[in-house]
Structures are given as structure tokens and as C-alpha cells.
Design a protein around this nucleic acid. Structure first.
Lengths: 239, 239
DNA sequence: GCGAAATCTTTACAGTGTAAAAATCACGGC
DNA sequence: GCCGTGATTTTTACACTGTAAAGATTTCGC
């Protein structure tokens, strides 16, 4: 699609026309005088970093193959060799997102004495990651252009789910097997995941701003999340 | 973006080159012999119907202005005059989706004697609508290209939220004011909405297939939803 | 060192959104 | 009745996108 906002292009026109130019590729923040070699050397990772930058700066709409190539200072077709197509790039980036997310969840796991505190801390870490990296979370959960059969993405997403299932199992003092699940266990997992994922999506989509505006002065999303999780314990009334 | 799948185009090339052709525009299922007038007459609604058709057939990715114009048998620029841009068309279509959704929820409201049964019926109707119209639900909740300030969309979405809030209030035997909300009320609303919306999104995204596969033979999404809602009542352990 | 393979650029093409101009028709005032 | 004005629709044009194919350059195994 043609985006309306014009974006500055960093890639110079042609090598032949750039006789006097010292550096053919000028990465946005790279050292200025380096003679950029024809072979980048570590373009794979550079493209992924550029992609994350573009994603968080311009959103999902702005995350295009050509924008990433511009950000990395290479020709627009360079990413193809490393990722095949846009789905490939997006999937690799989503895998990075899942690994970041897993690390954030693991870090939150240490806090809290009681299992209830642990669960609250995990839920808050979940939402906090999504708020800190809205582009990434959106990429991981709201994009149809993900190829879940890619090994890196599949493994990272699976690890994320295993962490969730393990936490649920621990809070119920059960072991959750890798294969079979009881309906009760599945319901507990689906309930926890749906609750926190749904809240996150509604929050990122701005669907909760109306609710937040009607609350007492200065009540933010985290307070609402806290109250919601607490009410899940105290008040057994279903929707 | 350039889509890979070639799509047949129904719109003939040029009027001047179509001397022998009786009907200039041949709508996909219209009566064959009608001489299509230059002015369509009801193009606005025809475009919206075509858009819904394209959405449910080709998904969000396939919902383009030009595809809708082809489906309706008009030139690719015709929708611009009626909707301004793609955001306009998508927003009007989302408004239709919210109205459909509201009607489905209202229809489910009659069932069930106890308030708990009512709540379960509402939740099931919610998920059922999304499963029956996955494209529409995705459009309503997973698209950044929505202009929520458009009157039709704003009103329809607001009505949908009011229905939810009203149902929560009824189940708590409270009146939920249009302006102020207590933290407790907001938490109850956020909890119900997050739970059902999160479940729906995970389900539509295929993120629950792993869970469903590990369940006893023949357990489908509705059974899992039922168990999840029931466990929300019976089991007070948070995530 | 040298040929083969990997990496990167150029070129090309079909598809997209959107703006502007041209064409066609409906309709109200005379 | 008819004519101009405005609404509706098509044509044309352009910048952007993904992707394929071919050429240029460098690295690497031998």
C-alpha cells in the first residue's frame, strides 16, 4: 500500500553516480567515514535490529521490507536473501519478541512470597512488556503474516506457552504434562491467558480509555489491572 | 502491497473498446442483460456488501479498495467518492459489524433463567459471532485502520459497550451510570470483556489449537469456553 | 591462486492507495 | 422543454509496496 507520509530515504541512488562519495552506505548512526564494503558482514542481525526500530517507530503499517532495507542502509532487495519474504522477516522478528517476552516473564518470576503475589506479579509483567513494546506485542499476536512453522518462532512461542502452563501448574500444585491435559487444567490455562491477553489487547487498542476516563481521578491501567485480578479472586460472578 | 494470488478482474478495460458489449458493468451475480447505467444509484450500499463479501472470502489482507470496486463491478476509484479512503470504507464496514454483533447479543439475551445462565449464554453468543464472522470481528478489533471518530462507527461501538456494561450491572443488581464508574464496577467490566475478548482472539488466531489437541478426544472450543467460564466461578485461583 | 558459492545491487513488473481531471447523468429553475 | 449546476463515475497519473530475475562483487574451499 502507498503510505501517505513521505519518509526520507538514506540510500544513495547509484554507485556509479557516487564517485566522490566516500561511504556508499551511510547507516543512520554508524561511524561516518567507514568505507562500507559490498558485503555487510552481519546484515542478518542488522536487518532485524533495523526492523525492530522501524516497528517501534512507525508501527506495524510502517514495517515494510523496503523501509527496513533503508533503515539498514542497503538496497531494497537485500533482505530477500536473508529472510525470503516479508513473512520471513516478520516471523524472525516475532521470535525475538517472544524471547524478550520470555526473559521479562522469567525476571518477574522471582518476586512475591505467596503464590497469589507471584501470579499478580506475572500478570503485571505480562502487561508491562506489551506496554513497553506495543509494536512487538502486536507483531506477535495480531499479525496474520506469521509463519508459525519457522523453527525459531515456533520454539520461542512454545517456550512462552510452556512458561505460562508451568506457572498455572505451580499455582495449583500440579504437574502439567507435556502431552495430555485435563479439561480442568486447560480451562485454568485458557482463563489466565485469555484474561491477561484480552486486557492487553483492549488496552493497546485504546478500547479501555473510556473506562479509565470514567474512573476516579488518576486511576491508570495498572490500577485497573490490579483491581481486575483481585476481583477475579474475591468476586465469583461471571460475565 | 502486491498480493501473490492473481485475481480475476471483472471490470472491462474501456468503454470505447467495448462497442459490441451490451452491459458495460457485469456484476458477479447480477442479471446478465441489464444495461448498466453510468450512475449506479445505490453504490454506497453495494460497495459495503461487496466489501463484506471480499472480507469473508479473502480475509483482511484481501480487503482492498480496488478489490471491493472489482467485486462491485465499478472502476477502482469509485469508492473514493463514497468513503474518502480505505480507512473510511473499513470504518463503515466495522460499524455494520458492530450492529450485527449487537443484534446477535440482544438475541442471546432472552435465554436463561438464572443470571449465571444469562451470563454464560451471552459469552457463548459473543464467541459464536466471532467464529461465524471471523473477518468482521478481526476488522472490528484488530485493525489499526479504524477511524473511531466516525459517527456511525462510534455510535455502534458505544452501543456495544453499553450492552456489555448493562449486562454486568444487571448481574450485580446495580445501575451503572453513564458517567462515573467505581473501580469495582470497572474491574468487573474489564474482567468480563478481557476474558471473552482474549479467548476469542486466541481462538481466531489459532493459539488455542495446541491446548485443544491435548484435551480428551472431541473437546471443541465451545466446551473449553464453557469449562473456562465455569471455573471462573468455581475456582478462585488467579493466573 | 582460482573457480564456485554466497552476498548484495539493479532492473523490472504487477499490485496497491490516492489525487486530479475528464466524462456522464440527475435535477431544479426558468 | 431545456439548460446549467452539481453529483456521480471513469480515466489517468504517480509514489509506494513485494517479489522475481539477472548482474556485480566478495568470500571461501580447494
Amino acid at each position: 500500500m502507498a503510505r501517505q507520509s513521505r519518509i526520507r530515504r538514506t540510500h544513495p541512488a547509484s554507485r556509479k553516480a557516487a564517485k566522490a562519495v566516500v561511504s556508499r552506505r551511510s547507516a543512520p548512526k554508524g561511524k561516518p567515514v567507514e568505507e562500507a564494503p559490498y558485503h555487510h558482514g552481519a546484515l542478518h542481525e542488522a536487518l532485524l535490529k533495523a526492523a525492530e526500530k522501524v516497528l517501534e517507530r512507525d508501527g506495524l503499517q510502517g514495517l515494510t521490507l523496503r523501509a527496513v532495507a533503508r533503515e539498514a542502509g542497503v538496497s531494497h532487495a537485500a533482505p530477500t536473501h536473508h529472510f525470503g519474504d516479508l513473512t520471513g522477516l516478520v516471523s524472525e522478528l516475532a521470535a525475538i519478541g517472544f524471547r524478550q517476552f520470555n526473559a521479562a516473564m522469567a525476571a518477574a518470576d522471582s518476586a512475591g512470597p505467596s503464590p497469589l503475589d507471584k501470579a499478580m506479579a506475572r500478570a503485571k509483567a505480562y502487561v508491562a512488556y506489551a506496554q513497553a513494546h506495543p509494536g512487538m506485542y502486536g507483531l506477535m499476536f495480531r499479525t496474520e503474516r506469521l509463519d508459525m512453522t519457522r523453527p525459531a518462532l515456533h520454539a520461542a512461542a512454545r517456550a512462552s506457552f510452556a512458561g505460562l502452563a508451568g506457572a498455572i501448574g505451580a499455582s495449583r500444585q500440579e504437574h502439567i504434562a507435556a502431552e495430555a491435559l485435563s479439561l480442568d487444567q486447560a480451562a485454568a490455562i485458557a482463563r489466565a491467558w485469555s484474561l491477561v491477553h484480552g486486557f492487553t489487547m483492549l488496552l493497546l487498542d485504546g478500547r479501555l480509555t473510556d473506562i479509565l476516563r470514567r474512573l476516579p481521578e488518576g486511576t491508570d491501567a495498572e490500577k485497573l489491572l490490579d483491581a481486575m485480578l483481585r476481583s477475579t479472586v474475591a468476586r465469583p460472578a461471571p460475565p
